[in-house]
Design a protein around this nucleic acid. Structure first.
Lengths: 164, 164
DNA sequence: CACAGTAACTATGATAATCATAGTGACAAG
DNA sequence: CTTGTCACTATGATTATCATAGTTACTGTG
């Protein structure tokens, strides 16, 4: 490719987000970070992306202020990556993507009846489905309010990836 | 690039969406479709993407059932592209992206005070800000419930693009 | 009827991002 | 002192992307 078009100076807010989010690798890495995977190798293994790509994207995300590099031990010096507030606020986007996929991207019965990923409202225990407002208590849902439970099929897939 | 990794068979719903949405061009084209731009040339001009890329992505979106090709006149035969229900349901994702960008992606005063894109709830007239639930009447917000008003700066940018 | 114009594309070639694979540096454990 | 772990960096083949130009099929104007 030639240098890809720069969208960071457009006034369109979707364009500005697309500059960062219009990239498979970024999306997959963010997903893993929201899932609690903070370490380089864990992210590389689960996403299936090469270390070079993971490295480049984490640097990009750090530069955008979406992710922070944090040393979790000295000797040997090791780093992990954490979402900043700006990063955590991307939850709405990923959650919307997940909702759309649950409604449209699976063949009949592929997930064995339920959603591929179930979300429960911590405060009231209700299954929220793909809603942005809790169907049980009416609260607005954000990152931290929800507890995700992968379906058996998804859990098996993650285990397979972690092994190789 | 070598063939890009295929995510369409993962059980992770974010992965499945990322297969389609993890692409700048797709995101920009969807934005334009939501904005009411249905014609090939209009989309190519406003996104700044080359006709080859626009063509390829529209075919992809059509194949995914997100977009429909529709002849709007015979002699000369001309087509336009419309969002299907599956496509319209992506509004939540684009709206979440816009919300995040409005909150985080602009420098102080860059938009002249207000948001780059203002959304008003048609039913009650309230400015919804970046909320998913109307702050005026409490209704859930979806595509069709909202009326978008680009800021002067964004409007000027779009006019500039349409001209060239 | 010839000619410019418009919409929706397709063709071509240069450039650069991606993947797969292998290798590096710093340390710990056995 | 060899093996193992983690977090990367280096290399080379492949291919998607961009910019530009060209094509097809018509319409409207002089």
């Amino acid at each position: 490719m030639p240098k890809r078009a720069d969208l960071s100076d457009t006034f369109c807010p979707v364009g500005r987000s697309a500059e960062l989010l219009g990239d498979r690798a970024v999306l997959l890495i963010l997903r893993d970070l929201f899932f609690g995977r903070r370490r380089f190798e864990a992210i590389a293994a689960n996403t299936g992306l090469g270390p070079q790509l993971v490295s480049a994207r984490l640097k990009l995300l750090e530069g955008e202020g979406v992710v922070e590099r944090h040393a979790y031990q000295e000797r040997p010096l090791r780093h992990e990556y954490r979402l900043t507030d700006k990063g955590k606020d991307l939850f709405g986007v990923l959650y919307a993507m997940r909702g759309w996929a649950e409604r449209w991207a699976y063949r009949e019965g592929e997930t064995g009846g339920g959603p591929a990923m179930r979300y429960v409202h911590r405060a009231c225990g209700a299954d929220v489905g793909t809603a942005t407002v809790c169907p049980g208590c009416g609260d607005l849902l954000g990152y931290g309010d929800l507890k995700g439970e992968p379906s058996p099929a998804l859990r098996a897939e993650q285990a397979r990836r972690a092994a190789s």
